[in-house]
Amino acid sequence: MATDADTQELAALRSLSADIGRNPHLTQAAGGNTSLKAADTLWIKASGTWLKDALAEDIMVPVAIPPLLRAVERRDPAADQPQAFAIEALNSRGLRPSIETTVHALMPQRVVLHVHCVDTISLAVQADCEAQVAKRLDGLEWAYVPYRRPGLPLAQGIAERLRPGVDVLILANHGLVVAAETVAEAELLLRRVTQLLARPARKVTGPDFVALTALAGDTCYRLPADVEAHAVAIDPESCRIASGGSLYPDHVIFLGKGSLVARPGEDVKRVVERCGTRPVAILFPGLGVLMRGDASAGADAMQRCLADVTARIDVAARLNYLTAAENDELINWDAEQYRQKLNAAGN
């Protein structure tokens, strides 16, 4: 049974979650998740829900911690299906716990915040990430976790790197985790770490709306929801980086493998003819981006995220892109297909 203190902390977590969810530099679409441990119960954001809705909707799901941790320790595949550990009597909406439930359960601290901070990701995709972060987070207790698929594989990767006192995790090609005993302390730590990892974005000119409209023609393609999304196509270095492949999981889930860059002289119809498919987004170098008309709100958010991340990556850095196998396991993963379905229906 939750105590009054647990209830107050959960209310504080909902408020903080909504603040995080409204900041596109911290999380995008249904990405990112927050949690609070109350005795043997883990209250965690539901899969497919948006943190920005934490105050308007009941998006937190209760999960039984002891059996979930036993499953993780045994490397039981059941741990990759966290809905099996949800406390149904308290889960009135019947939502699935976050894909990252195992990560939150594994962290010993009471409050855990996992964000897809664009500054962190811009470092986490660089081959020299660990060395770069070491300079910035000197004096903090942090750990670097090489890329693993979100869910049980990532939890196992964290378990291999976790040591007493660590309350900050840098997840390669993924994002940031901070943990503390109270919501207030977690918020302060998140603010401190993100400030230390902050890096300036390269400046670009605005998109060419006239040219983009002409390129779209009578197709179903449209402008992105956020004008900031165009920067990835306008800045030559960002466009080059994006053309190299997929950099992090949520890009694959919402936008597909890598990024489609139009060739000189191509309009939307010619791009579609060349590819034999209608990509979610098309980058037109020097001009901007066009989105497929049926692209979800999640896809729009991730297209802006791509612009925000690539604009902060060191142009001379060697990058670690997701491999073909890593792309495929994300696209074919049941948990992510469920999250995509929720986003398509709700947004």
Rank of each mutant, 00 (worst) to 15 (best):
D6N: 08
A18H: 10
G21I: 02
P24T: 11
P24N: 12
Q28I: 00
G31W: 06
L36C: 12
K37Q: 13
D40H: 07
L42K: 09
W43N: 11
A46D: 12
S47D: 09
G48Q: 04
L51S: 03
D53T: 07
A64T: 06
L69W: 03
A71L: 05
D76T: 10
A78S: 14
D80G: 15
D80I: 03
Q81V: 11
P82E: 13
Q83W: 15
A84F: 11
A86T: 06
I87L: 15
S92H: 14
M107N: 06
Q109S: 05
V112E: 10
H116D: 04
C117W: 03
D119S: 13
T120Y: 03
A124M: 11
A124I: 13
A124N: 10
Q126M: 12
C129K: 01
L137P: 13
L137S: 04
W142V: 12
P146A: 09
G151H: 07
P153C: 02
L154R: 12
I158V: 09
I158W: 03
L162N: 08
L162I: 09
R163P: 06
P164K: 05
D167I: 01
I170W: 02
A172W: 04
N173T: 03
N173P: 12
H174R: 09
L176I: 10
L176E: 07
V177R: 08
A179N: 07
A179W: 04
E181H: 02
L188E: 15
L188Q: 15
L190V: 09
R192C: 10
Q195D: 06
R202C: 03
K203V: 15
K203S: 15
V210M: 05
L212D: 11
Y221D: 07
R222C: 13
A225H: 15
A229H: 07
V232N: 07
P236Y: 01
C239D: 08
R240L: 04
I241H: 06
S243M: 12
G244C: 12
Y248S: 02
I253P: 04
V261P: 08
G265L: 07
E266K: 06
E266T: 11
R274E: 08
P279D: 10
V280R: 10
I282D: 10
G286W: 06
L287D: 07
G288L: 12
M291F: 07
G293C: 09
G293I: 02
D294M: 05
S296A: 07
A297K: 14
A297C: 11
G298L: 01
A301M: 10
M302E: 12
R304T: 11
I313H: 05
A316I: 00
A317R: 00
N320F: 00
A325K: 00
I331P: 02
N332A: 08
A335I: 03
K341H: 10
G346Y: 15
